[in-house]
Amino acid sequence: MFLGTVPEERVAALVAAAAPAVAATPAVTLRLAGGGRFGSARRPQVAWAGLDGDVAPLVALAGRLTDVARGLGLPVEDRPFRPHLTLGRWRPGQPADGTLTDRLAGYRGPSWPVTEVRLWESHLGSRPTYDVVATWSVGQA
Rank of each mutant, 00 (worst) to 15 (best):
M1P: 09
G4D: 04
V6T: 11
V6G: 03
V6E: 05
P7E: 14
P7D: 13
E9W: 06
R10I: 02
R10W: 03
V11S: 05
V11H: 03
A12K: 12
A12F: 10
L14T: 02
V15Q: 10
A17V: 09
P20M: 11
A21S: 08
V22M: 12
A24L: 10
T25Y: 00
T25H: 01
A27G: 15
V28S: 01
V28F: 00
T29F: 00
R31K: 11
A33E: 11
A33I: 05
R37K: 12
R37W: 05
A41W: 05
R42H: 10
P44S: 06
P44F: 07
Q45C: 07
Q45T: 13
V46N: 02
V46R: 02
W48N: 01
W48R: 00
G50T: 05
D52S: 14
G53M: 07
D54Y: 06
D54K: 07
V55F: 10
A62M: 12
G63K: 06
R64Y: 10
R64M: 09
T66Y: 02
T66A: 15
D67Q: 15
D67E: 15
A69Y: 01
R70G: 15
G73F: 14
V76H: 12
E77A: 14
E77K: 11
R79T: 09
F81S: 05
R82W: 07
R82F: 09
R82Q: 13
L85F: 06
L85S: 06
T86D: 07
W90N: 06
R91V: 13
P92H: 14
G93S: 11
Q94D: 13
Q94C: 09
Q94Y: 09
A96F: 00
T99W: 11
T99R: 15
L100S: 08
L100C: 04
L100G: 01
T101M: 15
T101P: 01
L104T: 04
G106L: 11
G106P: 04
Y107R: 13
R108A: 11
G109V: 05
G109E: 08
G109R: 03
G109K: 02
S111T: 15
W112I: 05
W112D: 08
V117F: 00
V117E: 00
R118I: 08
R118G: 08
R118D: 03
L119V: 08
L119C: 10
E121C: 10
H123E: 09
S126A: 15
R127L: 13
R127C: 02
V133Q: 04
T135W: 04
W136K: 08
W136R: 08
V138W: 02
V138A: 02
A141C: 02
